[in-house]
């Protein structure tokens, strides 16, 4: 028993280093996707203290809209642009209809409202696009689909070009986002709102505009995530489960931290894959990926209640 838990997995890792590298790579790629979803959460949470449960369904909705518009005859890139317009309309609608009447309500009420949005979008999406699994328009968007094959340590390592593209695009997106937040007027306004709502309002920052903007950016991130994940696994409402995966990422990284979302996403992506392959499948009957991330985050949180990179929680009476 002790041998199985503490020795055998590591022996396996050393025995087949190429397989270990493959596992790490797969984990890294899913980690990046988790990080992207978590990034959408973090942006909205920072600027409005709204825990946006709908981020996951926005990913599905964006991907479905893109595929649906392309199926309706639009060329691929115009469909992307049209999807962005749809996400913008969604952002405005959410702000107008849901958030504006609920300004100043307790956090849990706003959280529930985003669950309401989630349900609405699920029903709406299924009626318009149907519930069946669809194929993402990978080739039409010019995303390469071949493989890179390496042979490290005399073994075999296959990197899909699609995954490599995802990694590069995600990195670019994060850089662009950080640049936007740090060097533009709008970006500074978003950060100001995150620091102190009332102070930001009193120097003339418009809450409504910023909320629409933030939800729109979250929509863009959702579209990128949707394309990337859809290209790997097809587009359907099953994608929604990856939204749950972003939650432990947030816990691990801290609700306010962009760095935390990225580091947490990568950590969880890699560790859950390694745990599943080397411990979960041989010892626990597999499918441990559903809970491993949550338990890991829970253990980390016991030592750092605000997550690895979160703001220190200071409470006064």
């Amino acid at each position: 028993m002790i041998y199985d838990v503490f020795v055998a997995p590591f022996a396996d890792m050393i025995e087949a280093p190429d397989f270990l590298m493959q596992v790490l790579w797969e984990g890294l790629v899913s980690g990046i996707l988790y990080a992207l979803i978590a990034l959408g959460f973090v942006l909205i949470y920072r600027s409005s203290r709204i825990f946006n449960f709908a981020q996951g369904i926005m990913v599905v909705f964006a991907a479905l809209t893109l595929v649906g518009l392309h199926a309706a005859g639009l060329p691929a890139w115009i469909a992307v642009a049209a999807t962005l317009v749809v996400m913008f309309v969604l952002a405005v609608t959410v702000e107008r209809v849901v958030l504006r009447p609920l300004v100043g309500q307790p956090d849990i009420i706003l959280f529930m409202a985003t669950i309401g949005i989630t349900l609405f979008l699920i029903g709406f999406g299924e009626i318009i696009f149907g519930g069946e699994n669809k194929v993402m328009i990978t080739e039409e968007l010019g995303i390469p689909t071949g493989d890179f094959v390496f042979e490290p340590f005399g073994g075999l390592l296959i990197l899909q070009q699609l995954d490599v593209t995802v990694v590069i695009v995600a990195a670019l997106l994060v850089c662009a986002l950080l640049a936007f937040l740090n060097f533009t007027r709008m970006g500074r306004a978003i950060r100001a709102l995150g620091d102190d709502h009332q102070a930001a309002l009193s120097v003339g920052i418009s809450l409504q505009t910023i909320w629409v903007l933030v939800w729109f950016i979250a929509g863009i991130i959702a579209l990128v995530t949707g394309i990337a994940w859809g290209a790997r696994a097809g587009v359907s409402f099953a994608l929604e489960v990856i939204a749950y995966k972003a939650l432990p990422v947030l816990m691990l990284g801290g609700l306010e931290s962009i760095t935390g979302a990225i580091v947490g996403g990568l950590m969880i992506g890699v560790l859950e894959k390694v745990f599943e392959i080397y411990w979960g499948q041989p010892l626990l009957g597999g499918n441990t990926e559903t809970w491993f991330a949550f338990v890991l985050a829970l253990i980390v949180l016991l030592f750092r209640p605000q997550g690895l990179f979160g703001e220190r929680i200071i409470e006064r009476v």
Binding site: V98, A113, I115, G116, I117, F120, I122, G123, E126, I127
Partner: peptide
């Protein structure tokens, strides 16, 4: 599907 949608809208 309409059910899901309406329940979501009613919650809001």
């Amino acid at each position: 599907h309409l059910n899901v949608m309406i329940v979501g809208a009613l919650i809001i």
